[in-house]
Amino acid sequence: APTPSESETIADLKERIAELEFQLAVARKQLANGSGDSAPVTSPAPTAPAVPPPAIENIVAQLPHHPTVQYPTRTVSEIKMVVVHHTGVSPTITAREIAEFRVQKNNWAGIGFHFLVLPDGTIQQTNELTTVSRHAGDQNRESVGVSFAGNFNTGSPTAQQIAQGGHLIAWLLRTLNLSIGAMVGHKAIASTPCPGTQWDSGSRWQNSLRQAVNRWLSGSAQPTVPATDTTPVQPPPSSAKTIFHYLLLGSATDQSLATNYIAKFQPTVGTDAGQAQQARYVTIVGSTVSAATEQKLRAAGCNVERVAGNSPLAIRALLDNMARTGRRFLTFQGV
């Protein structure tokens, strides 16, 4: 008779086999009917229209993180799919509460997904794209997790969530050079009901989301102002900016992380957020610069992106890769 430890190993293997059988059955069904989630495809049409970035609130630095456990990092070129989730709880449960639970109860490094889409359409970034977080099992390293706030076993996302989530996913697909086939529901790659039973039955909200994504990919969609934003800030014309590109550092010592990047692109470099407001494009290095400062830059009409990672080494590696590939920005195309 097997020992207790052997029995546990056998049980684990049986569980893994069951999971693989489920995934194989899903794949066979998809191949048979030619619908639903499919394997990622990474070759969009060469003349595809650009997708402008949606409004994203970066709250990565504001969320709880484990004091000793860290997520690994990657380059954005490793990302091959976008995985759709639901939080599975009331939409009033915040990203902070989810992160606290993962850190304190599950001993995770931080929150699992990369983006959270709220019922009013607000998009929050909860992990950097270079972070290999926990949301898709064996596919963590090559995927980005986009979660919709709410439990969609009975209901469906709001119209604002579908619209803004579709914009976000389309922008990710275009930025990462992926096609619509790279968007999959969590249940397509793991034995889980996520993103809810209504994803592929009942209201089948995956269809509404795919339509929203396709509108952006085809160039027929237009940016919308979230319903809660009744007084949008009107940025000054780009001609009013006296600096083309400002590299905003949290401290002077951060400059060593961007040596190759600076040599390649020759941006204005400094730690002065006031001076950065005079730039058409601002690249924030790391997580030291506050979200409030980032918001002020956007309000001043700057095009802002943040290059961050779980460690200085990860930030340097990402900036070096951008310099090596001639990619000044991760999110702004044609610049």
Rank of each mutant, 00 (worst) to 15 (best):
H245G: 02
T242Y: 03
N214Y: 04
N177D: 12
S203E: 12
L248Q: 04
S220I: 04
S179E: 14
L178P: 08
L217H: 06
D200E: 15
S238H: 11
I169M: 14
P237N: 03
Y246D: 10
P237G: 06
G196E: 01
Q198N: 14
G181A: 15
R204L: 11
V233C: 04
T228V: 11
R210D: 14
H245Q: 12
H186P: 11
S208I: 04
W205P: 05
P226L: 02
L249F: 05
F244H: 14
P236V: 13
L172R: 07
N177I: 11
A212C: 00
T224Y: 00
Q206V: 12
W216C: 04
Y246W: 08
P226W: 00
V233K: 05
G196T: 05
P195G: 05
P195Q: 06
T228S: 14
R215D: 14
L248F: 07
G202Y: 03
Q222K: 05
V233E: 03
A252R: 05
S238C: 05
S191G: 12
I189R: 07
V184H: 09
G219N: 04
H167C: 08
G219K: 07
P226S: 00
W205D: 03
W199Q: 08
S238N: 09
T231H: 11
R210A: 14
S191Y: 15
A227R: 12
A227P: 06
P223G: 04
T197G: 12
F244T: 15
D200N: 15
N207H: 13
C194Y: 11
P236S: 14
P226Y: 03
L209A: 06
I169W: 07
K241Q: 07
K187S: 13
T231K: 09
T253M: 07
A240T: 13
L168I: 12
S239R: 08
T242G: 06
P223N: 06
Q198G: 06
H245L: 07
Q206K: 13
F244R: 15
A170P: 02
S218W: 06
D229W: 00
S218M: 04
T224G: 10
G250A: 06
P237A: 02
A182Y: 14
G250F: 10
G219P: 01
P193W: 12
L249G: 05
L209H: 09
A188Q: 08
Q222E: 10
A212F: 03
A190E: 13
T192K: 03
I243M: 02
L247G: 07
L247I: 04
L168W: 13
I169V: 15
R204M: 12
A170Y: 02
N177Y: 01
K187H: 14
G250H: 09
A240E: 10
I169A: 09
W171K: 07
R210L: 11
A252Y: 03
G196P: 02
H186D: 11
H167P: 06
L248M: 02
P235A: 01
Q198K: 08
P232T: 02
T230M: 00
P223I: 05
T242N: 04
I169T: 10
W171A: 08
L172M: 12
